[in-house]
Amino acid sequence: MFENIPNFPLKIEKMLYDGPNGIYKNGAPDGSRPGIFYANVNSKVPTFDMAALLLHETDPGHHLQDSYALTAQGIPIFRKVTDFSKYFGVPLHFPFYTAYSEGWGLYSEDLGEDLNIFKDDMERFGKYGLEIFRAARLVVDTGIHAKNWSRDHAIEYMTNYTAYTPEFIAKEIDRYSTWPAQATTYMIGKLKIRELRKRASERLCNFEKDKLIKPLHSVILSNGAMPISVMQDEFNEWIKMELLKNVRKGTCVKDVTDRVEQFHNIQSFVIFMCTFIAVLYTTDV
């Protein structure tokens, strides 16, 4: 599902404090430090979602995402490397494109299905459990910051509707309380990436045959961190180039001619309306 995969190392190490189940720290641009996944072994944490979490944090998630960015050509350093020194210093953090970064993380969990990563029902339960968790926190994020929910109300809601303990959820609620809309932005990014993939499969008749999922992923990953609007612009340019290739090769001609015919129909309609309005205006005068 990927092409020109960067050869950037990854290590798994013990988390030095009792935090989330696991987090990823990107590697150094010069390769002197590998990407590192820190696993929480300091307290009893759920393990049923570990397969989905590793997909999100390592490959094809943040580690692969950062590996492409670190080796990308022609983009500034702030798009290659995320500065985590002020990660929790909102709003003082240097522009951090959460929808792009974390949207890819959530999308990577879905790729686990395409890659046949989930080996048993428990791992699939973990993946679906995380999906429910992300849905519930959309409600909580809105509740806290728009509906004046209390901390206890938010904890109770997520305890009732997810597979996680109140102790685990309490840490998450404290995070959402101090970082408005951050949890919501994860889902915004994922939905946009899935939308672009769907549009590509609909507009390019050779999407499956020529395995264009690979260059599509490259468009998303090889340009480094960026706003969602910029990612969509890059996607639109890629679609134009692929359609042009199909014209030159004589493939998907029907798709192209249909669009040309559609354009001419719209053009004809616009000309008709302009003429109609001009006639009405002339008659009135």
Rank of each mutant, 00 (worst) to 15 (best):
I36N: 02
H264S: 08
N160D: 11
L212E: 02
T178I: 13
Q232C: 09
K86R: 13
G126M: 04
Y68R: 12
S222V: 02
F276C: 12
T47S: 00
V260T: 12
L138F: 01
Q73W: 13
W149F: 06
Q73P: 03
A72W: 14
V253R: 15
I193V: 13
A136K: 08
P9N: 01
A99G: 00
P34Y: 04
M15L: 15
L53V: 09
K86P: 02
E261H: 14
V140Q: 07
D210M: 08
Y161V: 13
Q262C: 10
M226V: 13
K192Q: 13
G112V: 13
L280N: 06
W149E: 03
G112C: 06
T257A: 02
Y186C: 02
H153W: 04
K249C: 14
E172K: 14
D141L: 02
N26L: 15
T71C: 05
T283Y: 14
Y128D: 10
V219A: 04
G27T: 10
S201K: 07
P6F: 13
H264C: 09
K209Q: 10
T184P: 03
K119W: 10
D141K: 00
K171D: 10
F94N: 10
D30A: 01
L55N: 01
R134W: 11
S108P: 08
D284W: 15
Y281I: 11
M1P: 09
E202R: 00
A200F: 08
W104V: 11
I75T: 00
S101I: 10
V285H: 12
S268I: 07
P29L: 15
N42S: 04
K245C: 11
N26C: 15
S32R: 09
H93N: 11
R137Q: 00
S32K: 06
I75D: 05
R124P: 13
D174W: 06
P91R: 14
L221S: 01
F235N: 02
I173K: 04
F133Q: 03
K171R: 13
T162E: 00
K245F: 11
N236D: 15
P215T: 11
F88L: 14
L111T: 05
I277C: 06
R137E: 07
N26Y: 12
W149V: 05
V256Q: 05
P29M: 07
R33E: 14
P166M: 03
V285E: 09
I213V: 15
T58P: 00
A28N: 01
K147T: 08
L216T: 03
P46I: 06
